[in-house]
Amino acid sequence: MTEYKLVVVGAGGVGKSALTIQLIQNHFVDEYDPTIEDSYRKQVVIDGETCLLDILDTAGQEEYSAMRDQYMRTGEGFLCVFAINNTKSFEDIHHYREQIKRVKDSEDVPMVLVGNKCDLPSRTVDTKQAQDLARSYGIPFIETSAKTRQGVDDAFYTLVREIRKHKEKMSKDGKKKKKKSKTKCVIM
């Protein structure tokens, strides 16, 4: 069974824990209790493949930012979460993405942009803004509501699919490099 290491990042209060708990335990946590770091595991079937999701729910508070490099190193894919009623959390996505790329030393890291709290009427981040940002990053965008469960499975499952595509691409690139290195030079 394939294991996928997913990391949920975003500013404090955007609903990272609520999304994760909704996926794992099928219930909505409405009281806000700032996370330092929590880890969850769940076995699911995605596109006919049974897999184990190892999900790291991270601290959004700035005082825990020193811990970010460590979990970013171990993560295979990242859910970059903002709240649709919090423009600052949307603007912060850029910083999370840049930090992930720096730590992973790669421009090509599996990510999904997630606009959470889409059940709320007080939207300050337009869907088109988020779609445009995701398009500019070359990553999928999904709106979710941890409260109603809308888009929750889709967000995590899409990230797994992005990781699969990335692994497939990397193995193809690896095979191309191996083929090239088999060419021999004969000096007579």
Rank of each mutant, 00 (worst) to 15 (best):
K178E: 15
T158K: 06
D126S: 13
M188R: 14
K169N: 12
S136A: 13
Q131E: 14
Y137K: 05
R164M: 13
M188Q: 15
K175P: 11
D154C: 07
P140F: 00
R149F: 09
D153L: 12
T144E: 01
F141S: 02
R149E: 11
R149W: 14
S145H: 13
K128N: 11
T158A: 12
D132N: 07
F156I: 12
L133A: 07
A130V: 14
Q150R: 09
I139W: 02
D132Y: 02
A134G: 02
R135S: 09
K177Y: 10
V186N: 12
K172V: 06
I187K: 13
D132M: 04
I163C: 08
L133W: 12
I139M: 08
V152P: 04
E162C: 02
R164W: 08
K172Y: 04
V125W: 12
L133G: 03
K177T: 13
F141T: 01
D154G: 07
A130S: 06
R135T: 10
S136M: 09
K165T: 08
V152H: 08
K176L: 11
Q131A: 11
M188N: 15
D173S: 12
D153K: 10
G138W: 00
G138C: 01
S181Q: 14
S145F: 02
A134E: 08
D132L: 03
K165Y: 03
I139S: 03
K176I: 01
A155W: 01
K172G: 14
A155F: 01
Q129Y: 03
R161G: 12
K172D: 12
K175L: 12
T158S: 11
Q131D: 07
D126K: 10
Y137P: 01
T127W: 08
G151K: 03
A134F: 05
K165D: 08
A130Y: 15
Q150S: 11
K178Y: 10
V160Q: 03
F156Y: 06
V125P: 01
R164Y: 09
K167V: 02
D126V: 10
I139F: 03
A130P: 04
V125F: 15
Q129F: 06
S181E: 14
D153Y: 11
R149N: 05
V160N: 02
K165N: 11
V186F: 02
V125G: 07
Y137H: 05
T148G: 10
K169W: 03
A155N: 00
L159M: 03
S181P: 11
D126G: 11
T127V: 12
F156A: 01
H166C: 08
K172R: 13
E168P: 09
T144Y: 01
I139H: 02
R135G: 05
K128T: 08
I187L: 14
V160T: 05
Q131Y: 06
M188E: 15
M170N: 14
V160P: 00
F141D: 01
K176D: 13
K165R: 08
A155D: 00
I142P: 00
K177F: 02
G151R: 06
Y137R: 05
D153E: 13
K172M: 13
K182I: 04
Q131T: 07
A155H: 01
G151L: 07
T144R: 01
K176F: 04
G174F: 00
M188V: 05
D132E: 11
E162G: 03
L159D: 00
D154H: 08
E162T: 04
A155I: 11
R135K: 13
S181G: 10
A155M: 11
H166E: 04
F156R: 00
T148A: 05
A146Y: 00
S136G: 07
E162W: 01
K169F: 06
I187S: 12
T158W: 05
M170W: 11
A130E: 05
K172A: 13
H166W: 07
G138A: 07
K169G: 09
K178N: 12
R149K: 09
K177S: 12
K172P: 09
G138D: 07
V186D: 15
M170D: 11
Y157H: 13
Q129G: 13
K169Y: 12
Y137C: 10
K182Y: 02
G151Q: 06
D126M: 11
Y157G: 13
K175W: 03
Q129W: 14
E168A: 07
A130N: 06
K182G: 12
K180R: 05
F156C: 02
K178F: 07
H166R: 12
V125M: 15
A155K: 00
K167H: 10
F156V: 11
T127Q: 04
S181F: 01
G174A: 05
K169R: 08
V152Y: 13
K178S: 14
R149M: 08
K128L: 09
K167I: 02
I187C: 15
R161W: 01
E162L: 04
D153G: 10
K165F: 04
L159W: 00
E162P: 00
I139A: 06
G174R: 06
S145M: 03
D153V: 12
D154W: 03
E168V: 03
R161H: 10
T158V: 03
K178I: 10
A134T: 03
F141V: 09
Q129V: 10
T158Q: 12
K180D: 15
H166K: 08
K175F: 04
E143V: 03
R164F: 15
Y137M: 14
Y157V: 15
K167T: 06
Y137I: 12
D154M: 08
K176G: 13
I187D: 15
M170G: 12
Y157R: 14
A130F: 15
R135W: 04
T127C: 14
L159I: 06
I142H: 03
L133D: 03
L133Y: 12
K172C: 05
I139V: 10
T127I: 14
E143D: 12
A130T: 08
Q131C: 06
F141A: 01
Y157W: 07
K178A: 13
Q131M: 11
V186R: 01
M170E: 10
S136K: 14
V160S: 03
L159C: 03
D126I: 12
K128M: 10
K176W: 08
G151I: 06
A155S: 04
G138H: 04
L133N: 04
T183N: 13
K169T: 13
R149Y: 12
V152A: 09
V152D: 05
F156G: 00
K167E: 09
H166V: 10
D154Q: 12
K172E: 14
T144A: 01
L159R: 00
R135L: 08
I139E: 01
D126R: 04
K167Y: 02
K178Q: 15
K165S: 10
D153I: 12
L159N: 00
M170S: 07
K178W: 05
